[in-house]
Amino acid sequence: MPEAASGSAAAAGAICAPLLALAGVHTHIGPYHILHGVDLAVPRGGLTVLLGRNGAGKTTALRTIMGLWRASAGRIDFDGRPIAALPTSDIARAGIAYVPETMGIFSDLTVRENLVLAARQGAMDADRLRWLFGLFPAIERFWQLPAGTLSGGQKQMLSIARAIIEPRQLILVDEPTKGLAPAIIANMVAAFRELKATDTTILLVEQNFLVARALGDNVAVMEDGRIVHAGAMAELAEDRSLQQRLLGLSLDMHQ
């Protein structure tokens, strides 16, 4: 069972139902049993970080929420509605966007065409687009270039821009800073901070613990396909022994 959250987080949860809730979720991929009864609550607003060692089941959890892999048992509720049996297209229409670790962009299409495909009915709101250009200036600079010609960091920016070209209630993001240069990571952190200031809720899988601490309001830690800790990010960031026990290292190593 997960460790108890801090008193303030528990009190907040009693007042406001989570936007996303997983209860006893199991996922099998072929003969492999990956998720073993995941219980996870993502509060409305702010950013929840999903941490864990490689192979803990973090990506499987995101893909299961999105319906790309089917839960074999358990319940997934989004905004009070069960979604575990819905097709991925309906889950997306309900207000969830997914940014995979592989980015999922169309390399042969231009930056503009990638965003047009992600917009409802192919129509991009001009104000929203200007806002995106402010978050990721490279999107505007390379507007007419094939997405495949962008750098790794620029492709990641495009992938996130595709997810938020339309307002979404929840964004699932899988390791957005993996392999990126420090300057690009700093730009990514700034963009997520601005996104947090909107009504968008974010569930972020992240291996860069400095980024996790900078952005996270809440945190859940996975181990062997289960949530073994949930609470405030500030609590984990301040407790070196808890970091060592849950993650096998201290966040201080990444300062």
Rank of each mutant, 00 (worst) to 15 (best):
I83F: 11
S107V: 04
M103L: 10
M103A: 03
A84N: 08
I105P: 14
E101S: 05
L86M: 12
I83L: 11
S107N: 08
I105E: 08
D90L: 11
I105A: 06
L109F: 14
V99G: 03
E101I: 00
P100Y: 11
T102L: 03
R81I: 14
G80L: 01
F106D: 00
M103K: 13
S89L: 08
I105S: 09
P100F: 13
M103C: 09
M103Q: 14
A84Y: 02
G80Y: 10
A97T: 06
V111A: 01
D79Q: 06
E101D: 12
I91V: 15
D108C: 02
A85W: 03
A92C: 13
G95L: 08
S107C: 00
E101T: 01
F106Y: 14
A97H: 07
A85P: 00
P87I: 10
A84L: 01
G95D: 09
M103T: 08
I83Y: 07
P87H: 11
A92L: 06
I105D: 05
P82D: 15
A92I: 04
A94N: 05
P100V: 05
I96L: 10
R93M: 01
T88N: 06
A85R: 12
A92H: 04
S89R: 14
F106R: 02
D79Y: 04
V99H: 08
A84H: 09
L109W: 10
M103V: 11
R81C: 14
P82V: 14
S89E: 15
A84F: 08
A94H: 09
I96K: 12
A94R: 13
G104A: 07
I105T: 09
I105W: 13
E101C: 01
A92M: 05
D108M: 06
V99K: 05
R93T: 03
I83W: 12
R93G: 05
T110L: 09
S89K: 06
I105H: 08
I96G: 10
G104K: 04
T102A: 13
D90P: 00
I96Y: 13
E101M: 02
P87Y: 12
S107M: 07
P87R: 10
T110G: 13
S107R: 09
R81M: 13
P82Q: 15
I91L: 11
Y98S: 01
